[in-house]
């Protein structure tokens, strides 16, 4: 078993773990982390595609590396946006609870 096969299998394993987490977890933060695991797995599989030199017939194809960097930036932005929404959501819920409680006290 060569190194690149192990790499590809590791990537596929991460994809599986990530998918399981995304679908089965209830907690939004857990899901966001699972998305990162899934994304990481996909990038590793992409690295394996590069190792095969599919594109240009070189020993190693440089195109996927460039794309993976872009993909990491996109995944990072997605994580930032998702966590920002989770934080805002928690704050908004706290506020609504507080409002409901004060309304009850006054009533």
């Amino acid at each position: 078993m060569t190194g690149s096969i192990i790499l590809a299998l590791a990537g596929a394993g991460l994809v599986g773990l990530g998918l399981y987490g995304v679908i089965m977890r209830e907690n939004a933060l857990h899901r966001i982390l699972a998305f990162n695991v899934l994304g990481g797995g996909i990038f590793i599989v992409f690295g394996f595609a590069a190792r095969r030199g599919a594109g240009a017939g070189f020993a190693a194809d440089p195109v996927p590396q460039a794309l993976v960097i872009t993909g990491i930036v996109v995944a990072f932005s997605a994580t930032a946006l998702a966590t920002a929404i989770v934080v805002r959501l928690a704050a908004a819920r706290d506020e609504e609870h507080a409002d409901a409680r004060s309304a009850k006290d006054e009533g």
Binding site: F48, A54, G55
Partner: peptide, 10 residues
């Protein structure tokens, strides 16, 4: 990614 692995182009 799988398409790229198959065909070598996007």
């Amino acid at each position: 990614v799988l398409i790229y692995a198959e065909t070598g182009t996007l």
